[in-house]
């Protein structure tokens, strides 16, 4: 047993105090990617503290599993879940400024926008029906409406996020989500 309050061993107390400090820093992060980097820092400090107290095996496990494996897996999980897949028609891509405007309301929620191209209108609608994409963006027949683009999403929460955004509403029409039924739920 190490005598912690001996003056010789005071540095152990100082280093151990880093553990709650970095753990607190993990908690206050809002952005998921920042939290992952902070978790890596916490893992490095934790391995140091464990090794300091003589638990070499625990320190090694923390470094290999707690830091390396879990961070990589979480990074992939965050990357593939915080995403909005938007179906588009390949030949007439929506203009870049529309996509930039579409990204603005998604940014506070750390959502990425991924474009999924389809050859024509029918397969685009089918993809929305089959839940391959979260939303679709297409230009309707110009004789009926003067608005160049329409956005349709099947997720009510995405409609909620996008509908409050004024610059987007001037550039494209946002169709309301169909009525929530067991068949169109996630």
């Amino acid at each position: 047993m190490i005598d912690l309050w001996n003056e010789e061993n005071l540095y152990i107390v100082a280093i151990a105090a880093l553990l709650p400090l970095t753990a607190g820093l993990v908690i206050v992060q809002v952005n998921p990617y920042f939290a992952l980097v902070m978790r890596g820092i916490l893992g490095a400090v934790a391995a140091l503290v464990y090794a300091l107290f003589g638990a070499a095996d625990v320190a090694l496990t923390e470094a290999l599993v707690g830091t390396m494996l879990s961070i990589t897996l979480y990074a992939i999980a965050v990357r593939s879940s915080l995403i909005m897949r938007l179906g588009i028609i390949e030949p007439d891509l929506p203009p870049e400024d529309l996509l930039q405007t579409l990204r603005q309301p998604l940014r506070p929620y750390h959502l990425r926008l991924e474009l999924v191209p389809y050859p024509d209108q029918e397969s685009l609608q089918a993809a929305l029906q089959d839940k391959e994409v979260h939303g679709i963006c297409f230009s309707p027949n110009p004789e009926i409406t003067h608005i160049p683009y329409e956005i349709q999403t099947r997720v009510p929460r995405l409609y909620q996020i996008l509908s409050g955004h004024l610059p987007l509403e001037t550039m494209a029409r946002l169709n309301p989500t169909p009525e929530f039924t067991p068949t169109n739920s996630l």
Binding site: Y33, G40, T67, M68, A75, H110
Partner: peptide, 27 residues
């Protein structure tokens, strides 16, 4: 830890780089 800890960093760097490219993820 000195030799393996850096591997985790490189993996994480590549994942972050790829989400940067695909979705213009602005920090």
């Amino acid at each position: 830890i000195l030799s393996v800890g850096n591997a985790a960093l490189m993996l994480l760097a590549h994942v972050i780089k790829r989400s940067d490219e695909a979705g213009v993820y602005e920090p």
